[in-house]
Design a protein around this nucleic acid. Structure first.
Length: 325
DNA sequence: AATTCTCGCAACCGCCTAACT
DNA sequence: CAGTTAGGCGGTTGCGAGAAT
């Protein structure tokens, strides 16, 4: 062996930076079409792209990957982002896992450019006491703790699960309690999404911002394996990627916040998006396992959970988004 | 019409963790 | 077990486009 560990990613010399050209995109897409996403280290060398592996991965996950929606955030999505941000803090990848057609980068940008401003304005009018100037809930103060990344995420994931239980068990919110499905917008199959599925509303004429260019690029991708003979093995993984909540980065699977079903309509309202199903992966389906309520309640309200419960229950959607719409 | 200002977004940077040898 | 890198993530920035003056 000439080297310990993994071989080097790529030479820093001669690496191209800046906006991607159509030729580069085609090169990247055709390579991934053949080999599937992953092994990014090999992408620049195999495609001849003068880009670093990170840049390739970013380009793919944020723009070229099929099934992503750009721009035109709906009110529903906006509410989801605001609420999830209050719950999770700036964990954009985790938030993006609840918005399968959105990338973490897109959500992050939208938060920084639009929602932050909105919250600030509403904060000045004194309508959201539970949200600080960065839009963080006071209950997410754990983020300031100098803990490991994994530990922090585990903690917030647990809080998410508890919040879901809170919602489900809350007598104050019958509508939420009756819904046992974590709603993930499934615009790909919904006619109602057509109104949001217009071309990327960006005035820029630069290629990088052209939704249509990317869509054209991806046209052949959406065909089922029968119609094309392109890497059936990858198509299935691609289908999983699109259908299985489209984990943008792959790491989101560790977030413990994925849904397993997409049964509820998107426009049912935000309250139901975080419900019991999000805790199924931790504890199984309550309706199926018939976990005693007292057991759940004990777990729910023990030690720190009690405070969590209080904070979360105080932080209803109506409050956190008051004055915004 | 020309110039300056503001805004939004694509992409880079740096850090962290997991994976690999 | 230690050293090294890939992959992932969040913060930040540079640039282009539109708005304002």
């Amino acid at each position: 062996m000439h080297n310990m560990g993994r071989p080097p990613c790529c030479d820093k010399i001669g690496i191209k930076k800046g906006p991607w050209t159509p030729e580069e995109d085609i090169s990247l897409v055709s390579y991934i079409q053949e080999h599937g996403p992953g092994n990014w280290r090999a992408v620049p060398t195999n495609t001849g792209l003068m880009r670093c592996s990170k840049s390739c991965r970013l380009r793919w996950t944020n723009y070229l990957r099929p099934g992503i929606k750009r721009g035109n955030f709906t009110e529903h999505e906006e509410k989801m982002i605001i609420h999830l941000q209050a719950l999770l803090g700036n964990r954009w990848a985790a938030i993006a896992s609840y918005l399968p057609q959105r990338t973490d980068n897109d959500i992050k940008n939208y938060w920084n450019t639009h929602l932050k401003k909105k919250l600030k304005q509403s904060d000045q009018s004194g309508s959201d006491e539970g949200v600080d100037h960065e839009g963080h809930s006071s209950s997410s103060s754990s983020n300031s703790h100098p803990k490991g990344q994994w530990e922090r995420r585990l903690q917030t994931d647990i809080q998410m699960a508890k919040k879901a239980l809170c919602d489900a068990l809350s007598l104050h919110k019958p509508a939420t309690a009756t819904t046992t499905t974590l709603v993930v917008p499934d615009d790909a199959t919904k006619p109602s999404s057509s109104s949001h599925h217009q071309p990327y509303n960006h005035a820029s004429s630069s290629y990088a911002s052209s939704y249509e260019n990317i869509s054209r690029l991806m046209e052949n991708w959406m065909k089922p394996p029968n119609s094309t003979n392109n890497s059936p093995g990858y198509y299935s993984s691609f289908s999983n990627m699109v259908n299985n909540n489209t984990s943008t980065t792959g790491s989101s699977s560790s977030e413990g916040a994925h849904s397993t079903t997409t049964t509820t309509t998107q426009d049912q309202g935000f309250d139901c998006f975080l419900t019991l199903n999000s805790s199924k992966q931790y504890y199984g389906s309550p309706s199926q396992t018939q976990v005693p309520l007292t057991l759940l309640e004990n777990w729910l309200f023990d030690d720190g959970a009690a405070q969590c419960h209080e904070d979360l229950m105080n932080m209803s959607l109506e409050e956190s988004t008051a004055g915004l719409f």
